[in-house]
């Protein structure tokens, strides 16, 4: 019963709409043509209402064949949408290229164990895809070179591991210190960048610049504080 009431209400609204629109029509020869289109619209509306009652899907959305006022496709809109899509793709490609280069640089720099690279920021020209600048970020607290890692090595106070025959295995005994004070003390060490680390970083940036055929001033480095 509710469905029927809904259908009748919708048809009443459609009839009122049709009468209103018909009142708006101009006189003269054009009236017949406009009335024809209005008639089609009313058929559509009634069919849509009937389809809603029958819960059927025989009504489709607006057909894909749409024509602008001038009878031609809106070329400017198509071109603008295409341009926007191309820009988006180019930006995405540049970002992926930059990320890939960053990974390459990190892998290249990681071969040197004196300093630990944590990040490589690669700036790429969007138009020509050329590398503008590479900034390598090193961690000043590299453990392998000078024994300053978050997992502190025994340092001078520790003893190297030996086997039962007192043969040196070359492995440093490791002491994991969970005491907060020790970590606070270590933070002082982290900030300190040794001249050796600076030298190693400079050498690495030179290698990277040579590898990518860049000018030396295009590759920079910095230490994480």
């Amino acid at each position: 019963m509710d469905v029927l009431r809904e259908l009748i209400q919708t048809i009443i609204v459609i009839v009122v709409l049709a009468v209103l629109v018909e009142m708006l029509l101009p006189g003269g020869d054009m009236r017949r043509y406009v009335k024809m289109v209005i008639g089609l619209l009313i058929i559509m509306a009634v069919l849509q209402a009937a389809a809603g009652v029958l819960n059927s899907r025989f009504m489709q959305d607006v057909p894909a064949v749409t024509v602008s006022d001038t009878g031609t496709m809106p070329l400017e809109d198509i071109i603008a949408a295409g341009q926007e899509l191309a820009d988006k793709d180019r930006e995405k490609a540049a970002q992926q290229f930059s990320e890939g280069l960053s990974g390459q640089v990190l892998a290249l720099v990681g071969m040197n164990s004196d300093v630990q690279a944590v990040d490589a920021r690669v700036s790429v020209d969007r138009e020509s895809s050329d590398i503008r600048e590479i900034t390598i970020v090193f961690n000043a607290a590299n453990g392998t070179g000078d024994g300053r890692s978050s997992v502190q090595s025994a340092g001078s106070g520790g003893h190297q591991a030996v086997n039962s025959t007192n043969e040196d295995l070359g492995v440093q005994p490791v002491v994991v210190d969970l005491d907060g004070k020790s970590i606070a003390d270590e933070s002082n060490l982290v900030k300190a960048v040794t001249p050796e680390q600076k030298k190693a970083a400079a050498e690495l940036t030179a290698v990277v610049a040579q590898f990518y055929n860049l000018k030396p001033d295009q590759v920079k480095y910095e230490f994480l504080e």
């Binding site: 289109v37 089609l40 559509m44 489709q60 607006v62 064949v65 009878g71």
Partner: peptide, 14 residues
Amino acid sequence: LVLAVPIVVAVLQA
């Protein structure tokens, strides 16, 4: 008539 084409197509499909 050009503007009415989409409506005609929709009615026809329905």
